[in-house]
Design a protein around this nucleic acid. Structure first.
Lengths: 162, 162
DNA sequence: CAACAATAGTTGTTATTGACAACTAAATCG
DNA sequence: CGATTTAGTTGTCAATAACAACTATTGTTG
């Protein structure tokens, strides 16, 4: 289990889970990222799009379109931000809240099913480890200046123009 | 850390790592999936496309195009299968082998960097857990009849040849 | 052996995820 | 006030992937 296999491991896990998850989410009539936004709004409350983008480490254009699609489905609402006329406050509608709950249950059930072959201890350990990996990924994606490469999300700082 | 958060956890890890990895792989001039195929060929040797698809849990059409793109780059070669005129044996070229090595080193280094904030024990635990999660995902994706949904990849009872 | 079903691979089409660039409008700072 | 930064929108592009329809072979069965 040398560290030299970690690359392949994470890669496979990410790829296969993304696929697996799509099927699970599908059944609620929602796509993966919509689902993310809903969850984020549920957990962090109403917020402008920039915040949403930063929290999810996603680009503003992507957020903009994803949010619009959710607005079309009446799952979220865009309200004018009294503090800044350029920005919208995005929030869950009642239907959005319901959908978010439903999605979360579905996804949790999905993962529970997925990990059901593991023992209780293994599952606990896996959850713990995933948490650590997630923190590391978050740090890499947005919060430090990613030595590996800039990535445009990792900076805000430099990259002013050009 | 109740199990009820596992859904969000895996989801985030998968999403963020996929993104993070793209940047790492990019620098070798290879895309994520090409990278997968190269690694698989390196690890399992020359094989027909069907096998490749089964091993990676990917659809034949996707494999077909991805392999073609690698052939265009002279990283893999398609040779007629003497045992079956319908199929090609896909193998790494010398350049492909080199690229596969390079990619693996790059990805491993990437993950090592990513997980460098963790302690040695945490990393070991994470690797172990990821392995378990991966097995679970593999089982879900292809090898059992996926109670969640069939998924069309779930149907290869035997691996006759090889 | 001929008819037919299954399999390998190709091609066309579609959807999702996401980045980047260019733009508008509003905010902030000197 | 003017220059710059920021929030969001829109357009375009690439990667990832599934599904369906098709060709060509292979395997099976009456």
């Amino acid at each position: 289990m040398s560290a030299s296999e970690a690359g392949v491991l994470l890669r496979e896990v990410a790829r296969l889970y993304t696929r697996s998850q799509r099927a699970a989410v599908d059944c609620c009539g929602t796509t993966n990222t919509q689902c993310h936004i809903l969850t984020e709004l549920r957990d962090s409350g109403a917020q402008p799009m920039v915040d949403l983008g930063q929290r999810l480490c996603l680009e503003k254009s992507w957020i903009s379109r994803a949010v619009d699609s959710l607005v079309d489905e009446r799952l979220v609402a865009k309200k004018a931000n009294p503090a800044d006329a350029r920005s919208w406050i995005v929030s869950l509608t009642a239907a959005g809240k319901r959908r978010a709950e439903q999605l979360n249950e579905t996804l949790d059930a999905h993962v529970r099913g997925l990990l059901s072959p593991l023992t209780v201890e293994q599952r606990a350990q896996a959850t713990q480890s995933l948490q650590l990996v997630l923190s590391a990924l978050r740090a890499d994606a947005g919060l430090d200046g990613g030595r590996t490469e800039p990535h445009q999300l990792a900076n805000h700082a430099r990259q002013s123009r050009i």
